[in-house]
């Protein structure tokens, strides 16, 4: 984890967080299989985030879930989870831990500064806590996770340098 910028009312940190992308139909067979492996029932409402001590599971679309490991685990353990999930022909589980970079954003001015880079509506009435969204931010495709105490923003790693520069620029200008 590295600190990107800390300024008046905003703090941004950059992290690599393990993540698996799950594709499936979301029916009861799918839910049971996930539950067996993770002891966590996937959310059924679109864009909802649920978590337990080990995992955070966000439903990004009607057939896509992002499984985020906020606490890092051994690669062997991660691969075992992957293999277990992929055992079902109804599920495609792909490790995307290396393909994304996360920015952890906190501070009372977070939304104001992010709104220099995106049109996205961050107001509580439009973007509740424990929900996720996929949108454009500084012309980069991003996923945004609205967690209790912070905002997690992820993008493809190839864009990370550019996005980091844009975030710093938004704080400064």
């Amino acid at each position: 984890m590295t600190e990107v910028i800390r300024s008046d009312g905003i703090e941004i940190k950059k992290k690599v967080i393990q993540q698996i992308i799950l594709r499936g139909s979301g029916d009861s067979k799918f839910n049971n299989h996930i539950n067996k492996s993770l002891k966590l029932l996937p959310p059924s409402d679109n864009l909802r985030i649920i978590s337990n001590d080990n995992y955070t599971l966000a439903k990004m679309s009607f057939d896509q879930w992002n499984l985020i490991f906020e606490k890092e685990i051994e690669i062997k353990k991660l691969n075992k989870i992957l293999d277990d999930l992929n055992k079902s022909p109804l599920i495609l589980a792909t490790n995307i831990s290396d393909s994304q970079v996360f920015f952890e954003i906190q501070g009372k001015n977070s939304f104001d500064i992010l709104n220099k880079l995106t049109h996205f509506d961050f107001r509580e009435k439009s973007f509740k806590k424990s929900t996720a969204a996929q949108t454009l931010l500084a012309r980069v495709d991003c996923s945004i996770f609205n967690l209790d105490l912070k905002l997690l923003l992820s993008c493809n790693r190839s864009f990370a340098d550019y996005l980091e520069d844009r975030l710093i620029d938004a704080v400064n200008y």
Binding site: I21, R23, G24, D63, P89, L90, L92, T94, N95, I96, S97, D98, S99, Q100, N156, R157, S158
Partner: peptide, 12 residues
């Protein structure tokens, strides 16, 4: 068709 696809361009 029962099929899914994921991009792994950035993963590897």
């Amino acid at each position: 068709l029962k099929v899914f696809m994921n991009s792994i361009t950035e993963q590897y």
